[in-house]
Design a protein around this nucleic acid. Sequence first.
DNA 1: CCGCACAGGCGAGACGTACCGTCTCGGCGC
DNA 2: GCGCCGAGACGGTACGTCTCGCCTGTGCGG
Lengths: 211, 211
Amino acid sequence: MSDTKAPDASRRSERSRRAIFDAALALVSETGYARTTIEGIAARAGVGKQTIYRWWPSKAAVLLDAFLDLAARANEAAGLDAPGGEGAGEIPNTGDLAADLKYVLRATVDEMNDPAFDLPTRALAAEGIVDPELGARFTEALLEPQLQYYARRIEAAQAAGDVDPDADPRIALELLVGPLHHRWAHRTLPLTHGYADALVDQVLRGLAPRP
Amino acid sequence: MSDTKAPDASRRSERSRRAIFDAALALVSETGYARTTIEGIAARAGVGKQTIYRWWPSKAAVLLDAFLDLAARANEAAGLDAPGGEGAGEIPNTGDLAADLKYVLRATVDEMNDPAFDLPTRALAAEGIVDPELGARFTEALLEPQLQYYARRIEAAQAAGDVDPDADPRIALELLVGPLHHRWAHRTLPLTHGYADALVDQVLRGLAPRP
DNA sequence: CCGCACAGGCGAGACGTACCGTCTCGGCGC
DNA sequence: GCGCCGAGACGGTACGTCTCGCCTGTGCGG
């Protein structure tokens, strides 16, 4: 109904799929997203253009899948659930909420300052802002799982009595992540570890249990 | 040195400049930013392509200037001076900080839910995320003046003893604006007046003066 | 203060290039 | 042998540059 024809996924070439991901990520990091073309990806991957058009609706969709594949493989290679990277994992719970959050936010700051992560992420975020469908996939597959880690850590802190049980964990988590993304997106001020720490301290003050 | 040739701005046609702004804004709101082309703007404005390429480096730069021009004229029409935000002005100071902030954040929520504001802003924000030079102009001319309104209102609250004098107004303001932009950009959850209110309440709890 | 001369911005559109998205081939692997 | 594959031709669109005369604002000389 929606598509006039559906390709047979069971006969899909895994070799081509991976080659397209590699080529896409390489071209974006080398020449930038804007100058990366589908024809260029196809040529670099040694693949026919139709093979890309058959499986993806847009250049951004290719890059998103390439990014997800990269994250999945990174997670897998990292063994189990060692935290830190963008594939990331659960937020540590040492019992010191402030320290745990600072650890994670500092890691996020480092990622945002790393061009290898920064450039493709900017391309995807920008496309997602304008294209609701792609943005939904981006949010669902990459952003929201990340946010849930914060939610669970904050709920654990509530259970431990470190955070006001009446506080909304969702708002709390957005208070941590929103300002960081804001500085990153609009480049208003530099992203430093000191900023991450100050942010955590200020937010936590508002989350303290009431007497 | 930077440009091989600099056009003579004193001989510039004001009529063409305005026609280009009008055409750009009309086309973006009618057909969307992605489908808006420089050739289309030129044709709609009754202007040669070269006239656009002579004065602007990119489609996004045209739209940014058109947006700024629109804001400037709106401000002018709104009465006095007070340069800065698109329609905005100084944040009211009724003595009730929470109420004042909720008023402004609710207005921001309304703007973000208004397609006439939402669509072109998304286009500019997306372009600014990817293009540092355009992003800097966007931030400098539109975003930062807006943020300064918050800074001044928060500093006034500090002077009045409603906010901890040790709190950093910059971080405080990002705590208000960051989460809002985050929801807007990534469409994670709906933007409502209730959310704006909850945000203000939570942030203000962390800003209360200490005993 | 006026009118003439001209540099240069103007509308229009031709031009070569790049990439789009579609389509059509054999060929080859599942 | 079905259908995905690599390869690439194809028409279409928009890019950014360029080349026309036309026309207008600026500045000079009277």
